[in-house]
Design a protein around this nucleic acid. Structure first.
Length: 441
RNA sequence: GUGGUUGUAGCUCAGUUGGUUAGAGCGCCUGGUUGUGGUCCAGGAGGUCGUGGGUUCGAGACCCAUCUUCCACCCCA
């Protein structure tokens, strides 16, 4: 048997965990500062909770769990089982659907509006590639029970704050489902909005011509495509785009509502935040009904490091109609990769012991010394075997422990220790209390 | 799901048109040095060449399958 992790999964060593903790603590403290309460949900849900919520493509990517015990019991002899016959649970695919399930299940006990954040791994049976894993973390903040646009304003501010604190240059792109609907309506293809947005979503990838070609492929008429053409423009400054669309949307209620919403957001977010209108931003998830936003790192071919939007009826699928929600998500793994590629990940955040107590001629005295350091709140390690100095020093070096302490017979005799700094080789003979004083963080 | 790519020592990689006993650097272990690491010197361990089949007198190399890695598409964080 070969020891290895499953496809698309990773181990995180001390160094990597330090980086992850650095990023999550920035995100978490922002979530808390904006008034969100923490929530954790199970790593797996009933499969019926998840299936059908992410489109047909999504169902394929959900990790499904076999029924416990004899999972074939409801399958006729010799028959090919249907998925629903042999599975009844599935790994969490995102954090939004479990959140919706939680809200419906606990409705009545929850304060409204209800704001929660959640930082947990999710799983997708995707083929791994750059910046894409089968197990990865999402950091979500959502609020349900309020239609106020102030929520969107807050979330844009929150995004900007986090990425500024992380020192990651990003561009925040905004769009509105109403604008997409308005464009489709004006072109007389309002009934084929989803198809239209799927093609439009590729604008920055395949260009205007590519989108036109795809629309033709999908059977859109030349006339409709011609009318859609004002939409096929790349992202540009918010003000400019809104003014241009404003006149065009005359008579389209949905389109005008979209413009009005985005104007409100634009006017109220922190004035130093740059956002752009990107009408090609459609996002795969079709439950968004209002504002849509996505965040991309500048100067990297990385995909988005965050996204979100408003969904007017997410809880409807669990039988609770009319609850409006809006939320955003941070892609932790991609943020970390972006920071590393740009050389923006801070060094020296690895946590290791402050001092190694060497084990030489008096193990009991050395151990006692180590325990005294620990009781004083110092991260201290005790070398468990009376090995050669060479070996013990090599151990300290490999772990990047900055100090070592000699506490052998000679030191025990006078109740002192020798404290040595590895980097410059200086050492002093002093009392345990004095050593503690020197090592205190 | 489609197409491509990768796999040889702990790590990074050599390995000729198929030919004896598969190499290097770094790391590791032992000793020089049983209370002082990094340097130096001497010696040593470590590989069923991803796995399973096949072709061949002979396979690390060629063929097939499978797993894995990375990449593009689809989709997504």
């Amino acid at each position: 048997m070969k020891a290895r992790t499953p496809k698309g999964t990773r181990d995180f060593n001390a160094r990597e965990l330090a980086k992850r903790h650095h990023v999550t603590s920035v995100i978490q403290s922002a979530f808390k500062r904006y008034g969100y309460a923490p929530l954790e949900t199970p790593s797996f849900e009933l499969s019926e909770t998840l299936m059908g919520k992410y489109g047909e493509e999504g169902d394929r990517l959900i990790f499904k769990l076999l029924k416990s015990g004899n999972f074939m019991r409801s399958v006729a002899e010799g028959a090919t089982p249907k998925a629903s016959d042999i599975i009844d649970k599935a790994l969490r695919y995102d954090l939004t659907v479990p959140f919706a399930r939680y809200v419906v299940e606990n409705f009545g006990q929850l304060p409204m509006p209800f704001k929660r954040y959640q930082i947990q791994p999710v799983w997708r049976a995707d083929k791994p590639q750059k910046g894409r894993f089968r197990e990865f973390y999402q950091c979500d903040a959502d609020v349900v029970g309020s239609q106020s646009l102030w929520q969107e304003v807050e979330l844009v501010n929150l995004y900007a704050e986090v990425f500024e604190a992380l020192n990651l240059a990003v561009v925040i792109r905004l769009n509105h489902r109403g604008i997409l609907s308005g464009i489709a309506e004006m072109a007389g293809v309002g009934d084929r909005l989803t198809e239209f947005t799927v093609a439009l979503d590729k604008l920055d990838k395949i260009g205007q011509e590519g989108v036109v070609a795809e629309l033709k492929d999908r059977g859109f008429s030349d006339d409709a495509i011609k009318k859609l053409s004002p939409a096929l423009i790349p992202a540009r400054s918010m003000d400019e785009s809104l003014t241009a669309l404003d006149g065009w949307f005359e008579g389209s209620e949905m389109g005008l509502k979209g413009i009005e919403d985005l104007r409100f957001i634009l006017q109220h977010i922190n004035s130093n935040i740059k956002v752009s209108l990107d009408i090609s931003l459609a996002r795969g998830l079709n439950y968004y009904t209002g504002c849509i936003l996505e965040v991309n790192p500048v100067g990297l071919d990385m995909g988005s490091v965050g996204g979100g939007g408003r969904y007017d009826n997410l809880t409807g699928i669990f039988g609770k109609e009319g609850l409006s929600g809006v939320g955003i998500s941070f892609g932790l793994d991609r943020i970390i990769m972006s920071l590393e590629e740009l050389g923006q990940m801070p060094d020296g955040i690895v946590s290791c012991p402050q001092v190694l107590v060497l084990n030489q001629s008096d193990a009991e005295y050395a151990f006692k010394t180590c325990m005294a350091l620990r009781e004083a709140g110092i991260d201290a390690d005790f070398y468990p075997d009376s090995a050669k100095m060479k070996k013990q020093f090599a151990y300290a070096e490999q772990r990047q422990i900055p100090w070592v302490i000699y506490a052998g017979e000679r030191e025990a005799a006078e109740s002192r220790v020798v404290l040595k700094h590895l980097a410059d080789g200086t050492q002093t003979n002093l009392s345990i209390a004095a050593a503690i004083e020197q090592l205190k963080p």
